[in-house]
Amino acid sequence: MNDVKKIGVEPDEWEPLKAYTNARIALGKTGISIPLKESLQFKMAHAHAKDAVYSHLDVAGLQADLESTGLPVHRLHSQAENRDIYLQRPDLGRLLANDSVDKLRRLNSSPADISIIIADGLSATAINNYTGPVVNRLVEKIQQAGYSLAPLLLVEQGRVAITDAVGGILRPRLAIILIGERPGLSAFDSMGAYITYEPQPGLTDERRNCVSNIRDRGLPPVLAVDKLMYLINSAFRLQLTGVALKDNNGLLE
């Protein structure tokens, strides 16, 4: 009988770099293929990403998490009636449904300094996981800084630019939207925060600042809030957001 050569997993010279990133590097190889373990992990990561895209906001849980802020929470919806339409028609996710427009107009409140908007985006999983710790700390810091706050808005099937639709009605000086980011194969629960000074219909994304990858294995919520407060204070000082507002927080003078 001929001897059969046993094929094992060959080590990868990039292995030490895995300590610094969640990216799919240094997977090793078995012959001309990647190891079975890595193949299965890839399929699992892909499944998590698909699940995140079709995940739903835990509205009751979020309302309970936000209760301690002392701010009213209003539930809104974009013009995308369901998830399939939302994915096929990004433009509808940027606009408020008619009944949501009417609801905001009935609030009848004076314009506040800051409006906080929470939207599912492409990962409601991220919003369900991180909205509570981020918003509670952020509201506390904003109030300590002396800024006034509009009621919290919880938007289903929303895109980043729905901030401008809200701004056109409530007229806050600045708006922050927390939104689920597009899932990847190494992060399916990442939340982003976009800041817009004087939000109004017709703005483009170059007028916004983004704080990305807010999650336990990315930018932790505590540090994310500190970064957001730096940008908020800078935005009010300079009266702008976007490409002209640089994040120099933590850089050496």
Rank of each mutant, 00 (worst) to 15 (best):
A26W: 05
K29Q: 15
K29G: 03
T30S: 08
T30A: 07
G31H: 01
S33D: 08
S33P: 01
I34A: 02
L36P: 00
L36D: 05
K37T: 12
K37C: 00
E38A: 14
S39I: 09
S39V: 10
Q41M: 12
Q41G: 00
F42E: 13
K43M: 14
A45C: 07
A45F: 00
H46T: 06
H46D: 10
H46W: 04
H48L: 09
A49G: 05
A49H: 04
A49F: 07
A52I: 07
Y54M: 11
S55I: 01
L57K: 02
L57H: 02
L57W: 01
V59N: 00
V59D: 00
G61N: 08
G61D: 06
G61Q: 10
Q63C: 13
A64Y: 01
A64E: 14
A64T: 14
D65H: 08
L66K: 04
S68K: 13
T69V: 07
L71S: 05
P72Q: 04
V73G: 09
V73T: 14
R75L: 13
H77D: 02
A80H: 04
E81S: 12
D84C: 00
D84V: 09
I85T: 14
Y86N: 06
L87K: 06
Q88P: 01
R89P: 07
D91C: 09
L92I: 08
L96Q: 08
D99A: 11
S100N: 07
S100D: 10
V101D: 07
V101C: 05
V101H: 04
L104V: 03
L104H: 09
R105D: 09
R105I: 03
R105Q: 15
R106Q: 15
R106A: 15
N108I: 00
S109I: 15
S110V: 12
P111E: 06
P111K: 10
A112R: 13
A112P: 10
D113P: 04
D113S: 13
I114F: 13
I116K: 06
I116G: 12
I118N: 11
A119T: 11
D120V: 09
G121N: 08
G121W: 10
L122Y: 09
L122I: 10
S123L: 09
A124N: 10
A126M: 08
I127M: 12
Y130N: 12
T131F: 09
T131N: 06
G132W: 05
G132M: 03
P133K: 00
P133Y: 07
V135H: 11
K141V: 07
I142N: 08
Q143A: 06
Q143I: 03
Q143T: 14
A145H: 08
G146H: 02
Y147E: 07
Y147K: 04
Y147T: 03
S148D: 01
L149H: 11
P151D: 01
L153F: 12
L153A: 07
V155Q: 05
V155I: 15
E156C: 02
Q157I: 01
G158N: 05
R159M: 12
A161D: 02
T163G: 06
